[in-house]
Amino acid sequence: MNLSTRMIVVLTAVGLLSGSFLAIVGQVTKERIIFNKRHEIEMAALKVVPGASSVKMIYEERDFAVFEDRDEAGNLLGYALQAAGTGFQDKIVLEIGVNAELTTILGLTIIEQKETPGLGAKITSEEDFLRYWQNRDCTKELTLRKPPVEDPGALASNEVNAITGATISSRAVLNIVNEAIKKARQLQTEGKLSGIN
C-alpha cells in the first residue's frame, strides 16, 4: 500500500470508529441528560413555593414558563415562574415562586448564571441574597435596597437587598423578576392561568 492510500485508510478508520462509538455514547446518555434538565427545573419549581408537592407546566414561551404548584390535596398553592434575562456576563435563568393571586413572592432560586465568582455569583447564595426574597409584596414594582441591611425585617415590603459590589447582577435579577411578574399578570388577565380553584 502506498503512503497516500495508507493515510486515507487510517484516517477514515479512526474517524469511523470514533464516530460510531460516540453515537453509542450519545444515545445512552441522551435521555438522562434531558431528564436531568427537566428534573432540575421541576425541583426548583417545587422549592420556590413552600409546601408544594407537585408541579405541572401550564404555559411556555421563549425564556419564560409558568408551573402550577399544588399541595398533596391538590390545592393550588401558587405558581413558579421560570424567567431569563441578561446578567453581567451571560444569561441568568431563575425561578420565582408566587402565590396564586400573584401578590406575594414566596421565594427565588437561580438556575443558571455565569456571574463573577465571589461577587455577582453571590446571587445564588442563600445567606447573602436569596433569603431576602421571601414574602415580598409584588403588587408594586420591586426595588433594590442599597446598601443592604442585615435584618430582613428592616426592608420595606417590596424591597430586596442588593449585593455589595455586585449592583449590576442584583439589578439584573430584580429586572427579570419584575418582568416575569408583569408577564404572569398579563396571562392571568387573559385567563391563561388556571386561576384560583
Partner: peptide, 26 residues
Amino acid sequence: PNQVRIASFIVIIASFVTIADRVLAA
C-alpha cells in the same frame, strides 16, 4: 503514517473528551 499522526491523535482525544463531557452531564 507520520504525516497524519496529529490528525488521528486529535480525533482520538476529541472522542474521549466528548465521552467524558456527556457522562458528566448525564
